[in-house]
């Protein structure tokens, strides 16, 4: 397989590449309900919700770790349920309530989960934090008194490389106590 041979990597027809790069991308006009604000947008129909939030709406609080549905970092809430924004197309989401981290605090008043995460050191680099906070909020809205294993289950799709998860679990429990 690795005999001394000469290969050419790319033989793609340049004209075709021209066409691909320049292809008339279909754009759609959408109205999205993000954090309670109705926003009208003109976006290429193939753009993911993650891209539209970050690039077209400047809502950069939503992060990405893979853009392939593998890490949970891009989690947002759709009608209150956690979903991966890197796998969603905005075109499917008209009329649905989209919540991002920017919509979690009430004005300048932080959500009890945000307060607990700050107090207990549950955010180190903070990169996984927006996704985990939203997933935790959805859990507490459904189940105000989750057992530790139920929290683990609910957050199992969100990876964090910094904290070892312990302080996150404690922070969710503290917020649950305070929310009661």
């Amino acid at each position: 397989m690795y005999a001394n041979a000469v290969f050419t990597l790319s033989n793609k027809d340049v004209n075709q590449l021209h066409r691909e790069a320049l292809r008339d991308v279909e754009r759609v006009v959408l109205t999205l309900d993000v954090n309670g604000e109705a926003r009208q947008l003109l976006v290429p129909s193939h753009k993911t919700l993650l891209e539209v939030l970050r690039e077209d709406m400047q809502l950069t609080g939503t992060k990405h770790g893979c853009e392939l549905g593998e890490c949970g970092t891009c989690t947002v809430l759709i009608d209150g349920k956690p979903q991966l924004s890197c796998l969603l197309l905005p075109i499917q989401l008209q009329g649905r309530a989209i919540t991002t981290i920017e919509g979690m605090a009430n004005g300048s008043d932080l959500h009890p989960l945000q307060v607990a995460f700050a107090e207990l050191g549950a955010a180190q680099c903070g990169y996984c934090t927006p996704g985990i906070l939203l997933a935790a909020r959805s859990l507490l809205e459904e189940n105000p008194r989750p057992a530790r294993d139920e929290i683990r289950e609910a957050l199992a799709g969100n990876l964090c490389r910094c904290t070892g998860y312990t302080k996150i679990l404690q922070a969710v429990e503290l917020a649950a106590d305070r929310l009661r």
């Binding site: 950069t60 609080g61 932080l110 995460f117 700050a118 050191g121 955010a123 180190q124 990169y127 934090t129």
Partner: peptide, 23 residues
């Protein structure tokens, strides 16, 4: 003292600007 990190508020609100957030 077990005080919160000084950057905690920026991190829990999604306000911290990581390199890819800078446009």
């Amino acid at each position: 003292k077990p005080l919160p990190k000084v950057d905690a508020a920026a991190k829990v609100t999604g306000r911290a600007l990581y390199a890819d957030d800078i446009a």
